[in-house]
């Protein structure tokens, strides 16, 4: 295979326009993002960071649901633009969408998604759905539990597990899992992330794991990218980045992970972020308005990615 990459994302940018008339603003929801996944070495890459920093947009661009403004995405050496809508690609690259309440059409029974996927992408005999049953089992559900149910008749966590199970039916090589466990409580969450680990290790599935849960990210992923306002501000091995974050935003993120202990509450107030659009359109570093280590240059000039201690950090402190 050309260049030996499963996925090669290069200088990816997506511009959106928000609002209308006088309040219209343009934002780079994804800004100059680059990363690769190797073909012969399955990997779990976490995208973490700010709400609204472009994580889901990166996912949609890879899936071909949005078109890049500039930059390129190659899947096994082939541009996504040529692949999208093709059956092989749709089978091999499976999404798990962020909000399970939006994933499923409220007027359609949940079961029908499974049966459609199994009919369209696999070779089982008509009327038989062995893979549906098997993939439901992997996430702790049974087909009896989804039988005849509309999405509104299931809880958030049940729907989320259903959408994970649906994605597994086609035996994909790349899973794009957008907040797959956000509504799943502690005891089941571990079984889902353990499932991801097993898929990587035993079925060679690479996973882009988008999450706010740094603990499970630390537990299952190989690398992590911390996103802020469209940019990768830090990218490297999950151990390096989370044990010892270098970018001031990564540091804030890590210290904000709540402790499950009432004696250890958040006490200091933090600066709430500026308006989303304002930070997006800020010149210089996007974090300058909130950064405790800010200096003059940060307001003027956008930092480059600096290679420090086996990772890339987009911050003037490391120039």
């Amino acid at each position: 295979m050309k260049n030996g990459k499963l996925l090669a994302v290069d200088n990816l940018t997506k511009v959106f326009t928000k609002g209308q008339g006088l309040v219209k603003s343009k934002i780079e929801a994804v800004s100059k993002v680059s990363f690769d996944l190797e073909l012969d070495r399955p990997e779990i890459l976490t995208l973490a960071g700010e709400s609204g920093s472009g994580k889901s947009t990166v996912a949609k661009l890879i899936l071909g649901f949005e078109t890049p403004t500039t930059g390129s995405i190659l899947y096994k050496g082939e541009p996504i633009a040529n692949l999208k809508g093709k059956k092989d690609f749709m089978r091999a690259v499976q999404p798990i969408f962020q909000n399970p309440f939006e994933t499923f059409n409220p007027l359609k029974k949940v079961q029908s998604y499974f049966h459609e996927t199994e009919r369209n992408f696999t070779q089982t005999s008509p009327g038989q759905y062995p893979l549906t049953e098997k993939s439901l089992q992997l996430v702790g559900l049974t087909s009896a539990e989804i039988k005849d149910k509309y999405p509104s008749e299931m809880s958030g966590g049940q729907l989320q597990r259903a959408s994970i199970a649906r994605a597994l039916i086609t035996n994909p090589s790349l899973l794009i899992a957008d907040e797959p466990v956000s509504m799943i409580d502690a005891s089941l969450r571990m079984s889902v992330v353990n499932l991801f680990k097993t898929l990587k290790e035993e079925a060679q599935v690479s996973i882009i794991y988008i999450t706010h849960d740094l603990a499970t990210a630390y537990y299952i992923s190989d690398r992590i990218a911390i996103m802020l306002r469209g940019q990768f501000v830090e990218l490297g091995s999950v151990k390096k980045v989370l044990d010892n974050p270098l970018h001031p935003y990564s540091q804030l993120l890590k210290t904000s992970v709540p402790a499950p202990d009432p004696r250890d509450r958040w006490t200091e107030d933090i600066a709430l972020s500026d308006l989303e659009t304002k930070e997006y359109t800020r010149k210089g570093c996007k974090f300058a308005g909130r950064c405790p280590k800010v200096f003059d240059l940060c307001h003027e000039q956008e930092p480059d990615h600096h290679a420090v201690d086996d990772r890339l950090v987009k911050c003037h402190l490391y120039a």
Binding site: S51, S182, L252, L253, S256, P258, W266, D269, L272
Partner: peptide, 15 residues
């Protein structure tokens, strides 16, 4: 707070 990053979560709890 389920959909939020931990920094914003912290902001929401504060709020």
């Amino acid at each position: 707070t389920t959909a939020l990053d931990v920094v914003v979560q912290r902001g929401v709890v504060q709020l």
